[in-house]
Design a protein around this nucleic acid. Sequence first.
DNA 1: TAGTTTGCTTGACACTGTGTAAATTGACAT
DNA 2: ATGTCAATTTACACAGTGTCAAGCAAACTA
Lengths: 210, 210
Amino acid sequence: MSSDPIDTPTKILQATLKLLEAPDAKLPTMSDIARATGISRQAVYLHFPSRTDLLVAATRYQDRLNNIDTGLAPSRGARSGAERLDAFVTAWGNYIPKIYGVARAIMAVTDTDAEAAAAWNTRMQDMREGCSAAIKALAEDGTLPPGTDMEQATDLLWTLLSVRNWENLTQTCGWSQDCYVATIRGMAMATLARDLGALTDVLACTDPPA
Amino acid sequence: MSSDPIDTPTKILQATLKLLEAPDAKLPTMSDIARATGISRQAVYLHFPSRTDLLVAATRYQDRLNNIDTGLAPSRGARSGAERLDAFVTAWGNYIPKIYGVARAIMAVTDTDAEAAAAWNTRMQDMREGCSAAIKALAEDGTLPPGTDMEQATDLLWTLLSVRNWENLTQTCGWSQDCYVATIRGMAMATLARDLGALTDVLACTDPPA
DNA sequence: TAGTTTGCTTGACACTGTGTAAATTGACAT
DNA sequence: ATGTCAATTTACACAGTGTCAAGCAAACTA
Protein backbone atom coordinates (compact mmCIF):
# COMPACT_ATOMS: atom_id res chain seq x y z
CA MET A 1 0.00 0.00 0.00
CA SER A 2 2.55 2.58 -0.95
CA SER A 3 0.68 5.81 -0.51
CA ASP A 4 3.23 7.88 -2.41
CA PRO A 5 1.94 8.57 -5.89
CA ILE A 6 3.87 6.80 -8.60
CA ASP A 7 5.49 9.14 -11.08
CA THR A 8 4.47 8.99 -14.71
CA PRO A 9 7.64 7.39 -16.12
CA THR A 10 7.31 4.54 -13.66
CA LYS A 11 3.65 4.13 -14.50
CA ILE A 12 4.58 3.91 -18.17
CA LEU A 13 7.23 1.30 -17.47
CA GLN A 14 4.85 -0.76 -15.38
CA ALA A 15 2.21 -0.65 -18.09
CA THR A 16 4.78 -1.59 -20.70
CA LEU A 17 5.96 -4.59 -18.73
CA LYS A 18 2.40 -5.68 -18.16
CA LEU A 19 1.71 -5.58 -21.89
CA LEU A 20 4.93 -7.37 -22.77
CA GLU A 21 4.39 -10.08 -20.23
CA ALA A 22 0.86 -10.85 -21.27
CA PRO A 23 0.66 -14.48 -22.36
CA ASP A 24 -0.46 -13.68 -25.89
CA ALA A 25 1.71 -10.57 -26.15
CA LYS A 26 1.87 -8.85 -29.47
CA LEU A 27 4.46 -6.14 -29.80
CA PRO A 28 2.72 -3.13 -28.25
CA THR A 29 2.63 0.19 -30.08
CA MET A 30 3.12 3.51 -28.38
CA SER A 31 -0.65 3.93 -28.49
CA ASP A 32 -1.15 0.62 -26.71
CA ILE A 33 1.27 1.64 -24.01
CA ALA A 34 -0.29 5.07 -23.61
CA ARG A 35 -3.75 3.58 -23.33
CA ALA A 36 -2.58 1.02 -20.81
CA THR A 37 -0.92 3.77 -18.80
CA GLY A 38 -3.99 5.96 -18.98
CA ILE A 39 -2.30 8.89 -20.66
CA SER A 40 -2.08 10.22 -24.18
CA ARG A 41 0.31 8.73 -26.69
CA GLN A 42 2.26 11.95 -26.90
CA ALA A 43 2.72 12.11 -23.14
CA VAL A 44 4.77 8.94 -23.43
CA TYR A 45 7.20 10.80 -25.66
CA LEU A 46 7.64 13.39 -22.93
CA HIS A 47 9.36 10.78 -20.82
CA PHE A 48 10.87 8.46 -23.41
CA PRO A 49 12.12 10.01 -26.62
CA SER A 50 11.49 6.92 -28.71
CA ARG A 51 9.97 3.50 -28.67
CA THR A 52 13.41 1.95 -28.50
CA ASP A 53 14.40 4.07 -25.50
CA LEU A 54 11.26 2.95 -23.77
CA LEU A 55 11.91 -0.72 -24.42
CA VAL A 56 15.47 -0.40 -23.22
CA ALA A 57 14.33 1.43 -20.10
CA ALA A 58 11.77 -1.30 -19.54
CA THR A 59 14.47 -3.96 -19.50
CA ARG A 60 16.51 -1.99 -16.99
CA TYR A 61 13.46 -1.43 -14.84
CA GLN A 62 12.69 -5.11 -14.96
CA ASP A 63 16.21 -6.08 -14.03
CA ARG A 64 15.88 -3.82 -11.00
CA LEU A 65 12.58 -5.46 -10.06
CA ASN A 66 13.88 -8.97 -10.45
CA ASN A 67 17.19 -8.35 -8.79
CA ILE A 68 19.05 -10.78 -11.01
CA ASP A 69 22.12 -10.79 -8.82
CA THR A 70 20.46 -12.58 -5.94
CA GLY A 71 19.88 -15.61 -8.11
CA LEU A 72 23.49 -15.71 -9.10
CA ALA A 73 24.83 -15.71 -5.55
CA PRO A 74 25.11 -19.52 -5.28
CA SER A 75 27.08 -19.49 -8.51
CA ARG A 76 29.67 -17.14 -7.12
CA GLY A 77 29.92 -19.08 -3.86
CA ALA A 78 30.50 -22.41 -5.57
CA ARG A 79 33.54 -24.43 -4.54
CA SER A 80 34.41 -26.42 -7.64
CA GLY A 81 34.27 -25.27 -11.23
CA ALA A 82 31.69 -27.88 -12.11
CA GLU A 83 29.57 -26.74 -9.21
CA ARG A 84 29.85 -23.19 -10.38
CA LEU A 85 28.92 -24.02 -13.96
CA ASP A 86 25.99 -25.99 -12.68
CA ALA A 87 24.78 -23.18 -10.45
CA PHE A 88 25.19 -20.59 -13.17
CA VAL A 89 23.31 -22.55 -15.77
CA THR A 90 20.50 -23.19 -13.34
CA ALA A 91 20.31 -19.60 -12.18
CA TRP A 92 20.32 -18.11 -15.67
CA GLY A 93 18.07 -20.77 -17.10
CA ASN A 94 15.49 -19.99 -14.45
CA TYR A 95 15.89 -16.26 -14.92
CA ILE A 96 15.07 -16.33 -18.62
CA PRO A 97 11.34 -16.91 -18.23
CA LYS A 98 11.13 -13.78 -16.09
CA ILE A 99 12.61 -11.59 -18.78
CA TYR A 100 11.28 -13.38 -21.82
CA GLY A 101 8.43 -11.01 -22.59
CA VAL A 102 10.66 -7.99 -22.70
CA ALA A 103 13.48 -9.89 -24.34
CA ARG A 104 11.19 -10.91 -27.16
CA ALA A 105 10.22 -7.32 -27.84
CA ILE A 106 13.79 -6.10 -27.84
CA MET A 107 14.96 -8.95 -30.04
CA ALA A 108 12.15 -8.18 -32.46
CA VAL A 109 13.25 -4.60 -33.03
CA THR A 110 16.91 -5.58 -32.98
CA ASP A 111 16.80 -6.37 -36.69
CA THR A 112 15.67 -2.91 -37.65
CA ASP A 113 17.01 -0.74 -34.88
CA ALA A 114 20.72 -0.47 -34.21
CA GLU A 115 20.23 1.23 -30.86
CA ALA A 116 18.04 -1.59 -29.60
CA ALA A 117 20.54 -4.10 -30.89
CA ALA A 118 23.27 -2.37 -28.94
CA ALA A 119 21.21 -2.37 -25.77
CA TRP A 120 20.40 -6.02 -26.10
CA ASN A 121 23.99 -6.91 -26.86
CA THR A 122 25.13 -5.09 -23.76
CA ARG A 123 22.67 -7.05 -21.72
CA MET A 124 23.82 -10.34 -23.20
CA GLN A 125 27.40 -9.31 -22.66
CA ASP A 126 26.67 -9.08 -18.96
CA MET A 127 25.43 -12.64 -19.03
CA ARG A 128 28.55 -13.60 -20.92
CA GLU A 129 30.60 -12.43 -17.96
CA GLY A 130 28.98 -15.18 -15.96
CA CYS A 131 29.80 -17.71 -18.67
CA SER A 132 33.36 -16.54 -18.72
CA ALA A 133 33.68 -16.79 -14.96
CA ALA A 134 32.30 -20.32 -14.97
CA ILE A 135 34.72 -21.37 -17.69
CA LYS A 136 37.59 -19.83 -15.77
CA ALA A 137 36.58 -21.75 -12.68
CA LEU A 138 36.55 -24.97 -14.69
CA ALA A 139 40.00 -24.16 -16.05
CA GLU A 140 41.39 -23.54 -12.59
CA ASP A 141 40.09 -26.91 -11.48
CA GLY A 142 41.73 -28.55 -14.42
CA THR A 143 38.29 -29.82 -15.39
CA LEU A 144 38.48 -28.17 -18.79
CA PRO A 145 40.11 -30.48 -21.35
CA PRO A 146 43.70 -29.51 -22.13
CA GLY A 147 44.08 -27.35 -25.20
CA THR A 148 40.63 -25.85 -24.84
CA ASP A 149 40.42 -22.26 -25.99
CA MET A 150 38.69 -20.48 -23.14
CA GLU A 151 37.26 -17.84 -25.42
CA GLN A 152 35.64 -20.48 -27.58
CA ALA A 153 34.38 -22.36 -24.57
CA THR A 154 32.77 -19.14 -23.37
CA ASP A 155 31.24 -18.55 -26.80
CA LEU A 156 29.73 -21.99 -26.76
CA LEU A 157 28.29 -21.81 -23.27
CA TRP A 158 26.95 -18.36 -24.06
CA THR A 159 25.27 -19.65 -27.19
CA LEU A 160 23.84 -22.67 -25.42
CA LEU A 161 22.30 -20.36 -22.84
CA SER A 162 20.81 -17.97 -25.38
CA VAL A 163 17.24 -16.84 -24.97
CA ARG A 164 16.56 -18.17 -28.46
CA ASN A 165 17.44 -21.69 -27.40
CA TRP A 166 15.24 -21.39 -24.34
CA GLU A 167 12.47 -20.08 -26.57
CA ASN A 168 12.89 -22.91 -29.02
CA LEU A 169 12.81 -25.69 -26.47
CA THR A 170 10.22 -24.41 -24.03
CA GLN A 171 7.95 -22.31 -26.23
CA THR A 172 8.13 -24.06 -29.57
CA CYS A 173 8.83 -27.61 -28.47
CA GLY A 174 6.86 -27.35 -25.25
CA TRP A 175 9.54 -28.55 -22.86
CA SER A 176 9.09 -27.90 -19.18
CA GLN A 177 11.42 -25.47 -17.49
CA ASP A 178 13.01 -28.27 -15.46
CA CYS A 179 13.58 -30.37 -18.52
CA TYR A 180 15.19 -27.44 -20.28
CA VAL A 181 17.54 -26.66 -17.40
CA ALA A 182 18.53 -30.29 -16.94
CA THR A 183 19.29 -30.77 -20.62
CA ILE A 184 21.28 -27.58 -21.12
CA ARG A 185 23.20 -28.28 -17.95
CA GLY A 186 23.92 -31.80 -19.11
CA MET A 187 25.14 -30.63 -22.49
CA ALA A 188 27.31 -27.95 -20.98
CA MET A 189 28.87 -30.38 -18.53
CA ALA A 190 29.37 -33.05 -21.17
CA THR A 191 30.91 -30.69 -23.70
CA LEU A 192 32.91 -28.42 -21.46
CA ALA A 193 33.89 -30.78 -18.68
CA ARG A 194 33.79 -34.00 -20.68
CA ASP A 195 31.43 -35.37 -18.07
CA LEU A 196 28.99 -37.82 -19.63
CA GLY A 197 27.53 -38.57 -16.23
CA ALA A 198 25.83 -35.19 -16.36
CA LEU A 199 23.67 -36.51 -19.18
CA THR A 200 22.03 -39.17 -17.03
CA ASP A 201 18.28 -38.90 -17.32
CA VAL A 202 18.60 -36.10 -19.83
CA LEU A 203 16.27 -36.46 -22.85
CA ALA A 204 14.03 -38.69 -20.83
CA CYS A 205 11.81 -36.10 -19.23
CA THR A 206 8.29 -37.25 -18.59
CA ASP A 207 6.48 -34.00 -18.16
CA PRO A 208 2.79 -34.11 -18.68
CA PRO A 209 2.39 -32.44 -22.04
CA ALA A 210 0.86 -29.01 -21.67
CA MET B 1 23.83 -16.80 -72.21
CA SER B 2 20.23 -17.79 -71.91
CA SER B 3 18.58 -15.83 -74.69
CA ASP B 4 15.06 -16.41 -73.41
CA PRO B 5 13.86 -13.28 -71.63
CA ILE B 6 13.34 -13.70 -67.89
CA ASP B 7 9.78 -13.15 -66.78
CA THR B 8 9.04 -10.35 -64.36
CA PRO B 9 8.24 -12.43 -61.28
CA THR B 10 11.62 -14.10 -61.61
CA LYS B 11 13.33 -10.77 -62.11
CA ILE B 12 11.68 -9.53 -58.92
CA LEU B 13 12.80 -12.61 -56.99
CA GLN B 14 16.36 -12.25 -58.25
CA ALA B 15 16.49 -8.59 -57.28
CA THR B 16 15.05 -9.44 -53.87
CA LEU B 17 17.66 -12.11 -53.24
CA LYS B 18 20.40 -9.77 -54.31
CA LEU B 19 19.22 -7.14 -51.86
CA LEU B 20 18.81 -9.64 -49.04
CA GLU B 21 22.21 -11.15 -49.61
CA ALA B 22 24.07 -7.87 -49.68
CA PRO B 23 26.66 -7.91 -46.90
CA ASP B 24 25.18 -4.88 -45.12
CA ALA B 25 21.61 -5.85 -45.90
CA LYS B 26 18.85 -3.84 -44.30
CA LEU B 27 15.36 -5.14 -44.70
CA PRO B 28 14.35 -3.91 -48.17
CA THR B 29 11.07 -2.09 -48.71
CA MET B 30 8.80 -2.74 -51.64
CA SER B 31 10.15 0.45 -53.20
CA ASP B 32 13.71 -0.82 -52.84
CA ILE B 33 12.79 -4.06 -54.52
CA ALA B 34 10.91 -2.34 -57.32
CA ARG B 35 13.82 0.00 -57.96
CA ALA B 36 16.29 -2.88 -57.96
CA THR B 37 14.07 -4.75 -60.40
CA GLY B 38 13.66 -1.74 -62.62
CA ILE B 39 9.87 -1.62 -62.45
CA SER B 40 7.32 0.43 -60.56
CA ARG B 41 6.40 -0.35 -57.00
CA GLN B 42 2.85 -1.18 -58.00
CA ALA B 43 4.04 -3.65 -60.58
CA VAL B 44 5.53 -5.72 -57.78
CA TYR B 45 2.06 -6.00 -56.28
CA LEU B 46 0.80 -7.36 -59.58
CA HIS B 47 2.91 -10.46 -59.02
CA PHE B 48 3.15 -10.73 -55.24
CA PRO B 49 0.13 -9.64 -53.24
CA SER B 50 2.14 -8.63 -50.20
CA ARG B 51 5.61 -8.15 -48.91
CA THR B 52 5.35 -11.32 -46.88
CA ASP B 53 4.30 -13.35 -49.91
CA LEU B 54 7.28 -12.01 -51.76
CA LEU B 55 9.69 -12.94 -48.98
CA VAL B 56 8.23 -16.40 -48.75
CA ALA B 57 8.45 -16.83 -52.50
CA ALA B 58 12.05 -15.66 -52.36
CA THR B 59 12.93 -18.44 -49.92
CA ARG B 60 11.33 -21.03 -52.16
CA TYR B 61 13.10 -19.65 -55.19
CA GLN B 62 16.37 -19.77 -53.33
CA ASP B 63 15.82 -23.34 -52.25
CA ARG B 64 15.27 -24.23 -55.88
CA LEU B 65 18.48 -22.46 -56.90
CA ASN B 66 20.56 -24.09 -54.20
CA ASN B 67 19.05 -27.48 -54.65
CA ILE B 68 19.23 -28.32 -50.98
CA ASP B 69 18.54 -32.01 -51.54
CA THR B 70 21.80 -32.71 -53.30
CA GLY B 71 23.72 -31.75 -50.17
CA LEU B 72 21.65 -34.11 -48.11
CA ALA B 73 22.27 -37.14 -50.31
CA PRO B 74 25.27 -38.44 -48.35
CA SER B 75 23.15 -38.23 -45.22
CA ARG B 76 20.49 -40.49 -46.66
CA GLY B 77 23.08 -42.94 -47.96
CA ALA B 78 24.85 -43.30 -44.63
CA ARG B 79 25.34 -46.77 -43.22
CA SER B 80 25.43 -46.26 -39.46
CA GLY B 81 23.32 -43.89 -37.42
CA ALA B 82 26.34 -41.96 -36.27
CA GLU B 83 27.49 -41.58 -39.83
CA ARG B 84 24.09 -40.31 -40.81
CA LEU B 85 23.94 -37.80 -37.98
CA ASP B 86 27.39 -36.65 -38.90
CA ALA B 87 26.55 -36.21 -42.55
CA PHE B 88 23.30 -34.43 -41.79
CA VAL B 89 24.86 -31.95 -39.39
CA THR B 90 27.60 -31.21 -41.89
CA ALA B 91 25.23 -30.82 -44.80
CA TRP B 92 22.80 -28.55 -42.99
CA GLY B 93 25.52 -26.61 -41.22
CA ASN B 94 27.10 -25.81 -44.56
CA TYR B 95 23.76 -24.97 -46.13
CA ILE B 96 22.91 -22.29 -43.58
CA PRO B 97 25.33 -19.65 -44.90
CA LYS B 98 23.67 -19.91 -48.29
CA ILE B 99 20.25 -19.09 -46.94
CA TYR B 100 21.23 -16.78 -44.14
CA GLY B 101 20.42 -13.51 -45.91
CA VAL B 102 16.89 -14.53 -46.66
CA ALA B 103 16.50 -16.32 -43.36
CA ARG B 104 17.42 -13.18 -41.50
CA ALA B 105 14.77 -11.19 -43.33
CA ILE B 106 12.08 -13.75 -42.71
CA MET B 107 13.01 -14.15 -39.06
CA ALA B 108 12.89 -10.38 -38.66
CA VAL B 109 9.30 -10.09 -39.80
CA THR B 110 8.30 -13.27 -38.00
CA ASP B 111 7.66 -11.34 -34.80
CA THR B 112 5.12 -9.06 -36.41
CA ASP B 113 3.74 -11.15 -39.23
CA ALA B 114 1.96 -14.39 -38.50
CA GLU B 115 2.00 -15.51 -42.12
CA ALA B 116 5.75 -15.10 -42.36
CA ALA B 117 6.13 -16.96 -39.10
CA ALA B 118 4.09 -19.80 -40.51
CA ALA B 119 6.20 -19.93 -43.67
CA TRP B 120 9.42 -19.96 -41.70
CA ASN B 121 8.11 -22.62 -39.35
CA THR B 122 7.20 -24.81 -42.30
CA ARG B 123 10.69 -24.45 -43.66
CA MET B 124 12.23 -25.32 -40.32
CA GLN B 125 9.85 -28.23 -40.01
CA ASP B 126 11.33 -29.65 -43.20
CA MET B 127 14.75 -29.45 -41.63
CA ARG B 128 13.35 -31.14 -38.56
CA GLU B 129 12.45 -34.13 -40.70
CA GLY B 130 16.14 -34.63 -41.27
CA CYS B 131 16.81 -34.39 -37.57
CA SER B 132 14.13 -36.92 -36.90
CA ALA B 133 15.51 -39.30 -39.49
CA ALA B 134 19.00 -39.06 -38.03
CA ILE B 135 17.68 -39.73 -34.54
CA LYS B 136 15.75 -42.70 -35.81
CA ALA B 137 18.87 -44.08 -37.46
CA LEU B 138 20.73 -43.73 -34.20
CA ALA B 139 17.96 -45.54 -32.38
CA GLU B 140 18.00 -48.42 -34.85
CA ASP B 141 21.71 -48.78 -34.28
CA GLY B 142 21.18 -48.87 -30.57
CA THR B 143 23.54 -45.92 -30.36
CA LEU B 144 20.92 -43.80 -28.65
CA PRO B 145 21.07 -44.26 -24.86
CA PRO B 146 18.27 -46.46 -23.52
CA GLY B 147 15.28 -44.55 -22.24
CA THR B 148 15.86 -41.64 -24.59
CA ASP B 149 12.70 -39.97 -25.75
CA MET B 150 13.11 -39.72 -29.51
CA GLU B 151 10.90 -36.69 -29.75
CA GLN B 152 13.04 -34.85 -27.22
CA ALA B 153 16.22 -35.94 -28.92
CA THR B 154 14.87 -34.54 -32.17
CA ASP B 155 13.92 -31.29 -30.44
CA LEU B 156 17.41 -30.95 -29.12
CA LEU B 157 19.19 -31.65 -32.37
CA TRP B 158 16.81 -29.33 -34.14
CA THR B 159 17.56 -26.57 -31.66
CA LEU B 160 21.31 -27.13 -31.85
CA LEU B 161 21.12 -26.74 -35.61
CA SER B 162 19.03 -23.58 -35.52
CA VAL B 163 20.00 -20.69 -37.73
CA ARG B 164 20.14 -18.55 -34.60
CA ASN B 165 22.92 -20.69 -33.14
CA TRP B 166 24.83 -20.54 -36.41
CA GLU B 167 24.35 -16.78 -36.42
CA ASN B 168 25.53 -16.45 -32.85
CA LEU B 169 28.69 -18.47 -33.28
CA THR B 170 29.82 -17.42 -36.74
CA GLN B 171 28.44 -13.88 -37.02
CA THR B 172 28.57 -12.63 -33.47
CA CYS B 173 31.47 -14.67 -32.10
CA GLY B 174 33.33 -14.79 -35.38
CA TRP B 175 33.84 -18.53 -35.60
CA SER B 176 34.85 -20.04 -38.90
CA GLN B 177 32.38 -22.24 -40.69
CA ASP B 178 34.55 -25.31 -40.12
CA CYS B 179 34.88 -24.59 -36.45
CA TYR B 180 31.13 -24.20 -36.17
CA VAL B 181 30.39 -27.47 -37.93
CA ALA B 182 32.96 -29.38 -35.93
CA THR B 183 31.67 -28.10 -32.62
CA ILE B 184 27.99 -28.63 -33.28
CA ARG B 185 28.73 -32.08 -34.62
CA GLY B 186 30.77 -32.88 -31.55
CA MET B 187 28.05 -31.71 -29.22
CA ALA B 188 25.39 -33.63 -31.06
CA MET B 189 27.44 -36.81 -31.03
CA ALA B 190 28.39 -36.42 -27.39
CA THR B 191 24.89 -35.66 -26.23
CA LEU B 192 22.88 -37.96 -28.45
CA ALA B 193 25.29 -40.85 -28.93
CA ARG B 194 27.19 -40.43 -25.67
CA ASP B 195 30.36 -40.34 -27.71
CA LEU B 196 32.95 -38.13 -26.06
CA GLY B 197 35.47 -38.99 -28.74
CA ALA B 198 33.53 -36.75 -31.10
CA LEU B 199 34.63 -33.80 -29.00
CA THR B 200 38.33 -34.33 -29.72
CA ASP B 201 39.83 -31.07 -30.98
CA VAL B 202 36.53 -29.29 -30.53
CA LEU B 203 36.89 -25.87 -28.85
CA ALA B 204 40.48 -25.70 -29.96
CA CYS B 205 40.08 -24.17 -33.38
CA THR B 206 42.92 -21.97 -34.43
CA ASP B 207 41.34 -19.95 -37.18
CA PRO B 208 43.06 -16.74 -37.99
CA PRO B 209 40.69 -14.15 -36.59
CA ALA B 210 38.84 -12.37 -39.36
C1' DT C 1 -6.69 -3.26 -90.29
C1' DA C 2 -9.24 -2.70 -86.22
C1' DG C 3 -10.34 -4.68 -81.72
C1' DT C 4 -8.92 -6.96 -77.65
C1' DT C 5 -6.02 -8.59 -74.24
C1' DT C 6 -1.89 -8.42 -71.32
C1' DG C 7 1.57 -6.21 -68.60
C1' DC C 8 3.21 -2.25 -67.02
C1' DT C 9 3.08 2.83 -65.56
C1' DT C 10 1.42 6.87 -63.25
C1' DG C 11 -0.95 9.04 -59.81
C1' DA C 12 -3.99 9.26 -56.05
C1' DC C 13 -5.60 7.64 -51.75
C1' DA C 14 -6.55 5.11 -47.17
C1' DC C 15 -4.44 3.35 -43.22
C1' DT C 16 -1.05 2.43 -39.49
C1' DG C 17 2.62 3.72 -36.84
C1' DT C 18 6.48 6.84 -35.44
C1' DG C 19 7.99 11.13 -34.13
C1' DT C 20 7.73 16.63 -33.90
C1' DA C 21 5.63 21.22 -32.97
C1' DA C 22 2.52 24.33 -31.26
C1' DA C 23 -1.24 25.41 -28.26
C1' DT C 24 -3.47 24.54 -23.79
C1' DT C 25 -4.16 23.39 -19.05
C1' DG C 26 -3.23 23.50 -14.18
C1' DA C 27 -0.55 23.90 -10.06
C1' DC C 28 2.26 26.80 -7.56
C1' DA C 29 4.98 30.85 -6.19
C1' DT C 30 5.10 35.73 -5.88
C1' DA D 1 -4.05 38.19 -10.20
C1' DT D 2 -0.29 37.05 -12.51
C1' DG D 3 3.89 34.89 -14.26
C1' DT D 4 6.11 30.55 -14.71
C1' DC D 5 6.87 25.95 -15.67
C1' DA D 6 5.85 21.20 -16.34
C1' DA D 7 2.44 17.95 -18.04
C1' DT D 8 -0.67 17.25 -21.46
C1' DT D 9 -3.40 17.50 -25.74
C1' DT D 10 -4.42 18.75 -30.54
C1' DA D 11 -2.53 18.90 -34.93
C1' DC D 12 0.76 17.82 -38.22
C1' DA D 13 4.73 15.63 -41.07
C1' DC D 14 6.63 11.49 -42.71
C1' DA D 15 7.53 6.62 -44.07
C1' DG D 16 5.78 2.41 -45.49
C1' DT D 17 2.09 -0.93 -46.93
C1' DG D 18 -1.57 -1.96 -49.71
C1' DT D 19 -5.70 -0.53 -52.97
C1' DC D 20 -7.86 1.59 -56.90
C1' DA D 21 -8.61 3.79 -61.38
C1' DA D 22 -7.06 5.45 -65.73
C1' DG D 23 -3.92 5.30 -69.45
C1' DC D 24 -0.50 3.33 -72.63
C1' DA D 25 1.97 0.22 -75.64
C1' DA D 26 3.00 -4.02 -77.61
C1' DA D 27 1.30 -8.46 -78.82
C1' DC D 28 -2.23 -11.47 -80.15
C1' DT D 29 -6.91 -12.18 -82.82
C1' DA D 30 -10.58 -11.32 -85.79
